[in-house]
Design a protein around this nucleic acid. Structure first.
Lengths: 307, 307
DNA sequence: CTGTTAGCGCGTTCAG
DNA sequence: CTGAACGCGCTAACAG
């Protein structure tokens, strides 16, 4: 690979002039300008990104730590993020993590100057204490400087509202097992029921169970009737449908399953109503926040999606 | 962020000694060694990755250009690759691309010293002329220095063999639209039929159609009966099943759909028999080839997977 | 065993 | 308008 010296030599100018032409490009005689461009063309010269980074004290890399639990979900985010970053000439350094410790380790290992910033995406588990510079997207943790969260209250309200309009008033909820998101979801659920003058039944809510299947079994074991089932995402919805079928409950006739996050749908789950979040705009907002100096957070609302 | 000078100063030694302790670590007096470690601890010092890269002329980054066409497939590769790279202390620089030009551009932009190597994953379209150093995983292109390909002949043979044993002898094939893989698949299909003394019927094969739905329509329009349908991957299988249902054909009773690549399955497609490739070992092999100096290629066989 | 020095490739003063 | 010189943070070769 040729370097700046080679170009300078071939173009009969100094390194500084080469640098000026290829970067700032202002205040250079047209003649030497052409000479540099020609030389660079001939040598197929590309400024070395590493050297530039060292000099400018900023790599153009953004580290993304992606939760794998709901992988098809995360993949949507990944694509949207990459697209946005790409438009800003930034690179995406990918790391997967599926629990507290993995995230901590990944964050450690990416904090050695390789990345200009870090993002954690889709972590549905308690996160370690992270630097305030790190952005959280669609994670459970609530109070963080830089984050983009789904409006869980709004989602739950919308879902309950829709289901009530379908004359389904016994709405079961399998909530997140912990975190701010769980509380907010419950709040929206509560609120919407109240608006529809439906009494709240504690027996219809499970909020301390990480496995959907077991949550559903517990629900059924309780013997309480329900005509609708709210779950937190599409993966859970799929599993719930299968399991309900095993219990001879038809979907959606007897029980309508509703996914509170149906972004990045996989084929075959179109029959399940859901709240869909606009991945592209979330990613755009995320990159804006990340690259801008303003440290703030966003709440994004999802829209009702029915087959 | 503190740098090597800070540590040297605090530890009362020179930069070189600090470097030695944290890298080579040989031939250093225990006393100064401890001093360095203590100082590094106190200052929470992390060697700057960029500076190391510039000096060593090797970033520890591997660029991965991932095709998005069959995204759930690609995601599996991505996770497996990241895991392997991680074990080798390498970072994964992610780029998505869905056509010839995007790949070319991505390859260009990652060839500025930022990456030590490049990998293209899952590209089912014709690729641009790429540097021989670039590794191809599960791509259509055949002759390339460094690549890991699926054994398409073996896969097609296995599929046909299985179907014949199920007494299904009219086996339709919706093949790749182009490339080496298409030819190999057809060869395996051909060969296996021959072994089962089933006459080859050109009317059962579609190999110049990128859309499954249209391919299937063409197949049905031809009016030729088939009791089994071979498609190239799970996404296509899903679509085929839906479409067959629309035509009032029951699956698998009337037509058994078989996916020639059912790696990284999504929930709900368990009923479709498939050939499954071992993603983890493919990724391991890929990283070995990439990091080793031997430039060679691999052919990997998939195993029959039935619900 | 250790400190000094010279690069790695580039951007950026600062004189001319 | 241009070139020489310095610094980014670190590693490696060379003297002591």
């Amino acid at each position: 690979m040729s370097n700046i010296n080679d170009v300078a030599r071939l173009a009969q100018v100094s390194k500084a002039t080469v640098s000026r032409v290829l970067s700032g490009s202002r205040g250079v005689k047209e003649e030497s300008r052409q000479a540099v461009l020609r030389a660079a063309e001939i040598l197929n010269y590309k400024p070395n990104a590493i050297a530039q980074s060292l000099s400018s004290q900023s790599t153009n890399c953004i580290g993304v730590i992606c939760a794998t639990e709901h992988i098809q979900q995360s993949t949507g985010y990944l694509q949207a993020l990459e697209k946005q970053l790409n438009q800003h000439q930034k690179h995406l350094l990918l790391r997967f993590a599926n629990d507290h410790d993995s995230v901590a380790q990944a964050a450690q290992e990416l904090s050695n100057g390789l990345c200009d910033a870090l993002v954690v995406v889709g972590a549905r588990f308690p996160l370690p204490e992270l630097d305030d510079e790190i952005m959280l997207i669609d994670c459970l943790s609530g109070s963080h400087n830089l984050s983009i969260q789904c409006d869980h209250i709004f989602a739950a309200e919308t879902a309950v509202h829709y289901l009530c309009n379908q004359k389904r008033r016994q709405i079961a909820l399998i909530n997140f097992a912990s975190g701010e998101a769980a509380a907010l979801t419950l709040e929206g659920y509560h609120q919407a029921l109240h608006n529809h003058v439906v009494p709240f039944n504690r027996q219809l809510v499970i909020d301390d169970e990480s496995s959907v299947r077991i949550a559903l079994q517990r629900l059924i074991n309780r013997g309480v009737k329900f005509s609708a089932l709210l779950v937190t995402d599409d993966t859970q919805a799929q599993e719930a449908v299968m399991m309900l079928n095993q219990y001879q409950l038809t979907v959606p006739e007897q029980v309508m399953v509703f996914s509170l996050d149906g972004s990045s749908r996989m084929p075959g789950s179109n029959a399940i109503p859901a709240i869909k979040y606009p991945l592209e705009s979330i990613a755009r907002r995320a990159v804006e926040l990340l690259l801008g100096e303003r440290h703030t957070s966003d709440l994004v609302r999802g829209s009702l999606l029915i087959a």
